[in-house]
Simulated assay, not measured.
Amino acid sequence: MQRQWLVTLQNLPAAGRSWDIDVPRRVLQDEQFGSVNVVSDLCGDVHWNVSLEHTGQLYRLCGEWRAVIARECSRCNAAFSWQVTGQTERQFQLGREPVDDESGVDCEYIAPPGEVNLVDVLREDIWLAWKADVICSETCKGLCQGCGSNLNSEACKCKRDESDHPFAALRNLKLDG
């Protein structure tokens, strides 16, 4: 079943190849397939629209993907579904990397016949798009720093005693006006 995700560059048709596919979550989470770490918190399949073209000695893989990943909000710690999109941009070349490559072309060199694991490419792209801090919404109020209440769903339970606040004495100041 996993063989469908392996592409041999030397066997690529002259017109190239395109995919507009939902990559099953179970494939991306299969530890037995590929060498890039699995993305374990996927909420569903990942949609991937990608094409592979052959120009000269370069093989260019480009497209875009979108996924939904279970995360925790950095402000309120609530679980939410993070919707993320990303780009796939890779160039491959068959053979060994030249010793003094001054061409300026950024590509991965692969020994012939040039087998590329598309699942590994997609996993890599998802990890590269990963953000350490994500929030559930732009309007997230976060947690109360005093009592720890989630301010999005409940009122603060703190009893604030601001008598020792450095500016508390200003409250009693009478201004003539």
Rank of each mutant, 00 (worst) to 15 (best):
177 G>W: 10
166 P>E: 05
33 F>S: 10
176 D>S: 12
59 Y>L: 08
49 N>V: 13
157 K>V: 15
86 G>V: 09
52 L>M: 11
56 G>V: 08
37 N>K: 10
74 S>L: 04
131 K>E: 06
116 V>T: 07
15 A>L: 07
107 C>M: 09
25 R>C: 15
101 D>C: 07
165 H>K: 05
16 G>A: 01
136 C>Q: 09
14 A>H: 06
149 S>A: 09
145 Q>V: 09
92 F>R: 00
146 G>R: 04
1 M>T: 02
156 C>I: 07
56 G>K: 01
141 K>A: 13
64 E>C: 14
162 E>Y: 12
86 G>Y: 15
41 D>G: 05
32 Q>A: 10
105 V>Y: 03
112 P>H: 04
100 D>P: 12
107 C>K: 08
34 G>Q: 04
143 L>W: 08
165 H>M: 12
89 E>I: 02
169 A>N: 01
136 C>S: 14
88 T>S: 12
46 V>M: 03
109 Y>V: 14
108 E>D: 13
153 S>W: 11
175 L>E: 00
91 Q>H: 02
164 D>C: 07
94 L>R: 02
91 Q>Y: 10
156 C>F: 02
91 Q>N: 09
138 E>H: 10
54 H>M: 08
29 Q>C: 15
112 P>A: 05
141 K>Y: 14
98 P>Q: 03
62 C>R: 12
16 G>F: 10
28 L>I: 04
136 C>I: 09
71 R>H: 01
174 K>S: 04
142 G>C: 06
81 S>L: 13
59 Y>K: 03
54 H>F: 15
155 A>F: 02
98 P>G: 11
140 C>V: 04
104 G>T: 05
59 Y>W: 09
71 R>A: 15
139 T>V: 10
18 S>G: 10
113 P>L: 01
117 N>Y: 08
68 V>Q: 01
36 V>M: 09
8 T>Q: 14
123 R>N: 06
79 A>I: 03
38 V>G: 12
6 L>H: 07
90 R>T: 04
25 R>V: 11
58 L>S: 13
106 D>F: 03
76 C>Y: 09
48 W>Q: 07
103 S>N: 01
161 D>V: 13
148 G>D: 10
139 T>D: 15
31 E>C: 14
97 E>R: 08
